[in-house]
Design a protein around this nucleic acid. Structure first.
Length: 1122
RNA sequence: GGGCCUGUAGCUCAGUUGGUUAGAGCGCACGGCUGAUAACCGUGAGGUCACAAGUUCGAAUCUUGUCAGGCCCA
């Protein structure tokens, strides 16, 4: 035993049932008082690092049970690797910026629009946000502590702190300096290289925008405000240039966007037909030609009853065809001539409309195509929703102005205007889902807004390559959800037009067009250098202060003004590997020990699956950018080469799934089925709740059910505790101490130690592979074997007997097993493991915290010895035989307390080795099955006779009408022939060969016996009961009754008793001969026994068919008497 | 509409490159054990492995399709 034994005080019996909550509190306070985590850090100061990143949770709500699953899982591997000697820095972090915080603040301040925020005062608003941030922090800390997660909370990083923000600036400056050309070549430097473009750029992007609130909305906000509305949709005729009376027909659900029509889009491979109208109608005069997609004809025919198709062309053949704008002022608004032409793009479909799409800069795809083709555009409706003055027909109108009937007035007027010009083919009212502002119910407008982007699409290949280096659990995420996302990755718009966030460190000279220049600032020091005003060292980098900072180019003297954005809080999260240390500027406490280079990349992260597009993605994106920037630097400055970082900032990741309620429903406040984690910890204790999360794969959707918690207690935690109670009970009773060890192991000892070796292998292996459920299963299975075979079988060895050495060996074995198991369980059930481990090692963590199980060396197989597979196989043979024996007893209704004379055992292939092995364990079988003896036989005919029936299912198809004849032959086989067939596994009758499948073999025992063939074993048990056997059975029943009486009377296991017995039928006492009386007394620790013959008692109870009454009482305990 | 996942006993889930009769726990029924355990053990009942087709000597497992549920995205 390598555990340090502080002083040998002997073992103390422990309560039969553990109080999990009390154990939690006890150890949490000891760990805290003795600074376990700090001591751990100190001990592992020079050890090889194993890196864990804690994804920063947002602190704008209370932690729920799903977060607790995260905590439970995140806690396992740092503990495991610490025990294996690695240095694992465990530092918590908080995600403190972003919209959720602002929404909380807005709600509480009862403001909602940017204008309201401005009038409340941006500084006040920022202060308020900062205060809300830590509103829930203590709830989080309590929950994390309560579950027993070991992590530095007192030293948590927070994304709003200056060092973290500065890391973001450092990072963006690197992205700014990193430049790529079309061949994928890299350059690194402040000045833009010819033909290269920066990873960082500004562009327009379509945002859902509320023109009343003056705010773009996030996807989440948009999804809350969908409503069904009725809109007028128009089929509009766009006349072709130089082709009289020929029109493209496009369909739109937002008439007002026609004012900004820039182009028409067709699908390149879609077929378009030109229809000739052969009759005047509402849609047009006879002779007019209309171009629509061929597939749409059937749905549009209703508008033009008489037509013929005169031409069919593919979309791409129409490319670049010019058309006449709907209003002539439209041409004047842009300098570029390239507009009002047909373009082709694969996003066009023929599912609705005409297969021709009108493009205006109010849609994501529209803008993408316009930008791709360098088509300049103008906005006829501004961000306030007002039509610009250059539109003479509708100037100053609001785009969603409605009348009493709810019709949109602007749309109607546009309709009328087009009708007048003969450019309207048809109109339809359509119900569809349209997003409204969830705050003020204003219809949203998709509006192009400026924003800053990271050029992720150019880094797609690098992202995919980095992903190759990651091990995903479950594995399908890698190629599936995450891989697909990377394949289709778009540039990352990482800026927001909000207030509470890290500020974008970019300043602009605010000139128009190509003359606009930017300065990207990489640190506070750099900011001070360029600033026109003096910045104090405690200057807050947040808005609004930062907005007021003006920069001056020292060479040109030109002034620069801040780009008014804050950073996406996902960006904050993505730079966490560097941000948590304030890299490269900040020198803090832990990070001095070793910098970011050793704490990168993470060996392990673990978050919920919804992070695929969240933290998992931004972490990878940032690490790829960083990796690329270092590569670019090395290319540009070959003399100063830096080591290339790992392309991904994490190597292994577990994606956890949702935790549902007991019925499989999503937990939600409105349903009232939310489980409060703290309540659960108080109800069950931390370890039982933790175990729930380990027993099922974390990456499958799981239900939170108290039944399963209870199951874990019953199957794992209580069995472990019970084994511990057993050990301490007898160690105390017999004064066994660690000095009385013996390696003189019995077969059973060797067996359980061999099983223990396997357990170590399995648990270690599973944890190394991030497969927590497998390790939990292995532990569960082992504890069952320990309790229900090893301890049950060895019980008597722990009682005081003449053979001290064997008793010592038993104690030594059980002690070793328990110490090892508690170490293996320490990462899962830290409190219970510590409690038991301390009880077993007799150390005192209050004196020396380094004796904690969490600093123990992780068990290795070599600590125990080699696995003995042969021995394990033999033991399982015995258990098989016992099982068959139980089975046979049951079939004859012979309870185990009734002794039987004999069992015959035979192996049907005459496996002498197996038989010999069983023979050695005859006593075990006798005890388990309450038999007088077991005999072993080589020839089955000594045990049973065989009978055989044909298997008609297999023989039928083979023999057809010969079946009857064959069947008779088979039925007439004698026992020896069948036995022979069993041995050789085939049978020859005349010319036909039969396999064992063709025969339904059964066996019969002689009279007074019952037999069964199971697998290769043939077992027979004698069922005849003699007088002596019945008497013995009766006594064993009495023992049982008296033991129960002892228990009911709460006697100690070592208490000596006196027994009184009364029999209704006085002759019964004759059954009890002296050996049986002695047996009865020995088994019940009775020092005396009276059988009353002279009495008159009514309340008898039936035992084995006899009327009996019994009573017990305690007598002075004198152990040496027994 | 697209992508991914799931569907195995009444319930919760295992099932490892395709390979004997598909497993465990809970629950149920019956029986048993108890000088650690108000606990436990044994036995049994309970499965067309969602459905269909295909590949194969052989499919819960591989392929395709259908159905149902979930998640993400549009």
């Amino acid at each position: 035993m390598n555990e340090k034994c502080q002083f040998n005080r002997g073992f103390k019996k422990v309560p039969t049932r553990p109080n999990f909550q009390e154990i939690d509190r006890k150890w949490q306070s000891i760990w805290k008082k003795n600074r376990l985590l700090f001591v751990t850090d100190d001990l592992r100061k020079n050890a090889e690092p194993w890196v864990f990143f804690d994804g920063p949770p947002g602190t704008n709500g209370r932690p729920h049970i799903g977060h607790m699953m995260q905590s439970a899982l995140k806690d396992v591997w740092p503990r495991f690797w610490t025990m294996r000697g690695k240095r694992v820095i465990r530092r918590a972090g908080w995600d403190t910026h972003g919209l959720p915080v602002e929404l909380t603040a807005e709600k509480e301040l009862n403001i909602g629009t940017k204008r309201e925020i401005e009038s409340y005062g941006v500084q006040n608003y920022i202060n308020y946000c900062r205060d809300t941030v830590f509103r829930y922090k203590s709830d989080w800390e309590n929950a994390i502590r309560r579950i027993g997660r070991e992590i530095h909370l007192e030293d948590a990083y927070a994304t709003y702190q200056r060092p973290y923000i500065e890391t973001g600036w450092w990072f963006l400056k690197r992205a700014w300096n990193t430049q790529l050309n079309q061949n994928g070549e890299l350059y690194y430097g402040e000045n833009e290289q010819n033909g290269f473009r920066r990873l960082l750029y500004r562009a327009d992007r379509i945002m859902p925008y509320c023109c009343r609130c003056g705010t773009p909305l996030s996807n989440f906000e948009v999804s809350q405000g969908y409503k069904t509305t009725t809109d007028i949709t128009l089929f509009v005729k766009f006349p072709l240039v130089n082709q009289q009376d020929t029109f493209f027909v496009a369909w739109t659900t937002t008439a007002w966007t026609l004012l900004s029509n820039m182009a028409l889009a067709v699908g390149p491979e879609i077929e378009y037909v030109t229809l000739l109208l052969t009759q005047d109608s509402e849609v047009g005069k006879k002779g007019e030609k209309l171009i629509i997609a061929k597939e749409r004809i059937s749905s549009l025919e209703k508008f033009f009853p008489n037509y013929k198709i005169i031409e069919t062309k593919l979309g791409k053949e129409w490319e670049n065809t010019p058309y006449i704008p709907l209003w002539d002022w439209q041409t004047k608004q842009v300098r570029n001539v390239k507009q009002h032409i047909v373009v082709s793009d694969t996003y066009v479909s023929t599912e609705d409309g005409t297969g021709i799409v009108h493009l205006a800069p109010y849609g994501e795809d529209d803008l993408r195509i316009l930008r791709k083709l360098s088509i300049q555009y103008f906005l006829a409706v501004n961000e306030d929703g007002i039509v610009e003055d250059f539109v003479p027909e509708f100037q100053k109108r609001y785009f969603k102005e409605v009348n009493e009937k709810g019709d949109c007035l602007l749309d109607i007027e546009i309709l009328k205007n087009l009708l007048q010009k003969g450019l309207l083919l048809a109109k339809e009212k359509v119900d569809h889902e349209y997003p409204f502002c969830y705050r003020c119910d204003t219809p949203l407008m998709y509006f192009p807004r400026k924003g800053w982007f990271l050029r992720m699409s150019d880094l797609r290949e690098r992202l995919l390559q980095a992903n190759e280096l990651i091990r995903w659990q479950p594995p399908h995420i890698k190629e599936g959800r995450f891989g697909n996302w990377l394949e289709n990755v778009n540039d990352w718009n990482f800026t927001r037009e909000r207030y509470w966030g890290s500020p974008l460190p970019i300043w602009s000279n605010k000139r128009v067009g190509d003359d606009e220049k930017f300065l990207c600032i990489g640190s506070f020091e750099e900011l001070k250098r360029y600033s026109t005003t003096v910045l104090e060292d405690d200057f807050d980098l947040h808005k609004p202060g930062i907005d007021l900072v003006e920069l001056k180019n020292p060479y040109t003297g030109e002034l620069y003004y801040r780009e008014n954005f804050v950073l996406d809080s996902w960006f904050d999260a993505g730079i966490m590997p560097w941000g948590q240390w304030g890299y490269p500027y900040f020198e803090g406490s832990i990070e001095k020990i070793d910098g970011v280079d050793k704490q990168y990349p993470a060996d392990f992260i673990c978050e919920a699956i919804d992070q695929t597009r969240g933290w998992f993605y931004t972490l990878l994106a940032c690490s790829v950018i960083y990796h690329t920037s270092v590569e670019a630097e090395n290319k540009t400055y070959p003399n100063k080469k830096k080591p290339l970082p790992f392309p991904s900032s994490f190597k292994n990741v577990i994606c956890t799934e949702l935790v549902l309620d007991e019925k499989g429903q999503k937990m939600s406040k409105s349903k009232g089925n939310v489980v409060d984690p703290l309540e659960q910890f108080e109800k069950w204790g931390a370890d039982p709740v933790r175990w729930l999360f380990y027993s099922v794969n974390p990456w499958t959707v799981k239900r939170f059910s108290e039944d399963i918690i209870q199951e874990g207690i019953q199957q794992v935690l209580l069995p472990l505790w019970n084994a511990y109670v057993f050990f301490t009970t007898y160690a105390e009773a017999d004064g066994w101490t660690l000095e009385k060890q013996s390696n003189d192991y019995s077969t059973l000892d060797a067996w359980i130690l061999s099983r223990l070796t396997e357990l170590i292998e399995n648990v270690t292996n599973a944890l190394e592979n991030f497969d927590v459920a497998r390790s939990a299963q292995a532990i569960t299975f082992f504890l069952d074997e320990l309790n229900n075979w090893y301890i049950r079988r060895s019980r008597r060895r722990f009682w005081k007997s003449e053979n001290d050495i064997d008793q010592f060996a038993a104690f030594t074995t059980l002690h070793k097993v328990l110490v090892t198991v508690t170490k293996l369980m320490a990462p899962f059930a830290p409190h219970l493991s510590e409690e038991i481990y301390q009880g077993l090692t007799q150390s005192d963590p209050n004196q020396d915290i380094t004796q904690s199980v969490h600093l123990a060396k992780w068990p290795e197989t070599s600590d125990i010895g080699k696995r003995d597979l042969e021995l394990e196989r033999k033991q399982s043979l015995i258990r098989d035989i016992v099982t068959i024996g139980h089975n046979l007893r049951q079939s004859q209704n012979l309870r185990v307390r009734q002794p039987l004379l004999q069992m015959k055992v035979c192996h049907r292939t005459e496996d002498l080795n197996a038989i010999e092995e069983i023979e050695k364990n005859e006593h075990v079988i006798c005890e388990e099955l309450n038999l007088k003896r077991v005999t072993f036989h080589i020839h089955p005919n000594e045990v049973v006779t065989f009978q055989c029936k044909p298997n008609l299912k297999t023989l039928g198809p083979r023999f057809g009408n010969r079946l009857k004849e064959i069947s008779i032959k088979i039925q007439n086989l004698n026992s020896e022939q069948i036995e022979n067939a069993l041995k050789t596994k085939s049978l020859q009758i005349e010319q036909e060969t039969f396999s064992l499948d063709d025969l339904l073999i059964s066996c019969n025992a002689e009279n007074g016996w019952v037999a069964r063939m199971e697998g290769d074993w043939i077992i027979s048990i004698q069922t005849t009961l003699t007088e002596e056997l019945l008497a013995e059975g009766f006594v064993r029943e009495l023992v049982n009754r008296i033991q129960n009486a002892r228990k009911i009377s709460n006697f100690e296991v070592s208490d000596r008793i006196h027994i009184d017995l009364w029999f209704k039928d006085k002759s019964v006492s004759k059954l009890l001969n002296d050996p049986l009386i002695q047996y009865l007394k020995r088994e019940t620790l009775a020092v005396s026994l009276d059988i009353h013959t002279n009495h008159n008692i009514q309340e008898y109870q039936e035992v084995s068919g006899y009327e009996v009454k019994w009573a017990v009482r305690k007598v002075e305990s004198r152990r040496e008497n027994v």
